[in-house]
Simulated scan of single mutants.
Amino acid sequence: MENDQQQKLISELVFLIEKGNAHVSMEDAVAGLPANMRTVIPENLPYSIWQLIEHIRIAQKDILDFCVSEDHEKLAWPDDYWTEPVEHIDDQTWENALNEIKQERQRFFDLLQDEKTDLFSPIEWGDGQTILCEAMLIADHNAYHTAEIVVIRRMLGCWR
């Protein structure tokens, strides 16, 4: 693949992960969320917005750690990917989680943009995954759960 084509692909991946094409960004999905709604679990749903944010954070970090190190800590599905419900999340904990998502996302973008990164070859310690595949996994996974955040906000009556 020519360098300008690869750069175009990387730009599209970054945009898809960060902003999305057909959906709101994660930042937009949580903007203006009242603090008292972070941990509410709507009837007939298994998790709160807080649990979704933590799940996005944990899964995204796990994907990145897998991409960069054979020695990454393997997490057990589903227990290590989901937090237990809590009654309250303070502003500092909330902001720390959102900031970590942004920082890990930027680390992944740095990996994508590193000229030594091969987007198409299988990751040596994986079982066929490529960096391109993992980028699409992050985009798909985060978009899915971002949509759930919007739906929960609608159910709680705190969406636009």
Rank of each mutant, 00 (worst) to 15 (best):
M1R: 02
N3P: 00
Q6M: 14
Q6H: 07
Q7E: 12
K8C: 05
K8Y: 06
K8W: 08
L9Q: 06
E12R: 13
E12S: 09
L13A: 03
L13W: 01
V14T: 14
V14R: 08
N21K: 05
A22M: 06
H23Q: 07
V24W: 10
S25I: 12
E27Y: 07
E27S: 14
E27G: 11
E27T: 05
A29W: 00
A29C: 09
A31L: 10
L33I: 07
P34Q: 09
A35Q: 12
A35S: 14
N36D: 15
M37D: 14
R38I: 13
T39L: 03
I41G: 08
P42W: 09
N44R: 14
N44F: 11
N44M: 13
N44D: 15
P46E: 03
Y47P: 07
I49W: 03
I49M: 07
Q51T: 10
Q51F: 10
L52T: 10
L52N: 07
E54V: 03
I58S: 08
A59N: 12
Q60V: 04
K61N: 00
K61T: 05
D62W: 13
I63D: 01
L64R: 07
D65I: 06
F66W: 02
E70V: 11
H72Y: 12
A76P: 03
D80Q: 07
D80Y: 07
W82Y: 13
T83K: 05
E87A: 03
H88P: 02
D91Y: 05
Q92S: 09
E95C: 04
A97V: 06
N99I: 02
Q103H: 12
R105L: 14
Q106G: 07
Q106F: 08
F108V: 00
D110V: 04
L111F: 11
L111E: 10
L112Q: 01
E115Y: 06
K116R: 10
L119N: 04
F120R: 10
E124I: 13
W125M: 13
W125H: 15
G126T: 12
G126K: 15
D127H: 06
G128D: 11
G128Y: 10
G128C: 08
G128V: 08
Q129M: 09
L132F: 14
E134I: 15
M136G: 02
L137Y: 11
L137V: 14
L137I: 15
H141E: 05
H141R: 07
N142E: 15
A147W: 01
E148M: 13
E148A: 07
V151L: 13
I152V: 09
R153H: 11
M155P: 03
L156Y: 12
L156A: 02
G157V: 02
W159M: 05
R160W: 06
